[in-house]
Simulated scan of single mutants.
Amino acid sequence: MSESHESRWTEPGSPAGAQTARQPWPGAMGPPVVGPPPRLSAARPPTPAATMGEWQGALRPPVFRVNNPRPTYREALPVRGQMLAAGAAAGAGWMLLFGLMMTGSARGYVWITLIAGILAWAAAAILARFGDRGVAVGVAGSSGVAVAIAGIVVAYNLAGGTWLLW
């Protein structure tokens, strides 16, 4: 087929000599499409694969364009390692302060540790809602470890026949 014949291609059923601007579907016979790709119509939303890029392979994530039509949400207060360590140190200091206040008996230690743990968890909940979430995670983690140690003391004494909490 000669090049001049392809440039004069018309859609079947159109008047003689009228050229069409419609792009053929894949596999259709017709002239090659030259120029920018057609714009997507506003009536039909684009598919995610058409706007975001397709899957590139087994180990490579899909490529996202900068002009993403959907909003991208980011964490306002992300958990950072330094703030988590600061919260863990503050929570450990808090629990140590309360633990050193009751050195007389195991029963007093367990009760004061439970009270300090509840107060620390309340502070962690407030920090998680209104403050730094990294500090909240650190406080909750260190106070949880301290309450777990108090639980081990209770379990050890219970194995010996003594219930410490009453």
Rank of each mutant, 00 (worst) to 15 (best):
N68Y: 14
G93C: 10
I152D: 11
M52D: 11
T51A: 14
G108Y: 06
A88Q: 02
H5Q: 08
I149D: 09
P45W: 01
G57A: 05
F130N: 02
A146D: 05
V145S: 04
P45V: 00
E11I: 01
I152R: 15
M1N: 07
G160F: 01
A159Q: 02
E75Q: 13
L59G: 15
V139E: 07
R80P: 09
G134Y: 03
A128N: 15
F64L: 15
G57K: 12
S142G: 12
G17S: 07
L158W: 09
W166K: 11
L96S: 07
P36V: 01
V137A: 09
A123H: 02
V33K: 13
G151E: 14
W166M: 08
S143R: 02
V147Y: 10
P45T: 00
A21F: 09
M1G: 09
V145N: 04
T103F: 15
T10D: 05
S4D: 12
L100K: 15
R70Q: 02
N68L: 12
G134R: 02
A43F: 06
V147G: 09
F130T: 02
M83T: 09
M95I: 03
G131H: 10
P62W: 01
P37L: 11
V79L: 06
R107W: 13
A21R: 12
R107C: 05
A123W: 03
Y73G: 00
G134N: 04
Y73T: 00
I152S: 12
V135I: 12
L127P: 01
W9V: 00
V33R: 14
A90K: 04
R74L: 12
A146L: 03
R60N: 08
A123V: 06
N67Q: 13
Q82R: 15
A90P: 02
Y109C: 01
T103E: 14
V66C: 10
A136H: 04
G151T: 07
F130D: 03
T47P: 00
G134F: 01
R80A: 14
G81C: 06
M1T: 00
R60K: 08
L97G: 07
P62N: 05
A136E: 02
S14C: 06
A124C: 06
N68G: 08
W166S: 11
A148P: 06
G93I: 13
G141I: 08
G104A: 12
A116W: 04
G93W: 14
F64C: 06
A159M: 09
A43V: 10
L96H: 10
I118P: 00
F98Q: 12
A90Y: 04
G108K: 12
L59S: 15
I112D: 11
L114M: 13
T113P: 09
P12N: 08
L100H: 15
G131A: 03
R60Q: 08
F98R: 10
R74M: 09
A146G: 06
G99Q: 14
W55E: 11
I112K: 10
G57E: 11
A148V: 01
P38Q: 04
T20Y: 10
G108F: 04
P24M: 03
I115D: 02
G53Y: 00
A123M: 05
S7V: 00
L100Y: 15
M52G: 14
A85G: 06
E6N: 04
P12H: 11
T20F: 09
A155P: 05
V79W: 04
W163A: 11
A86K: 08
I149K: 09
Q19I: 00
V154H: 11
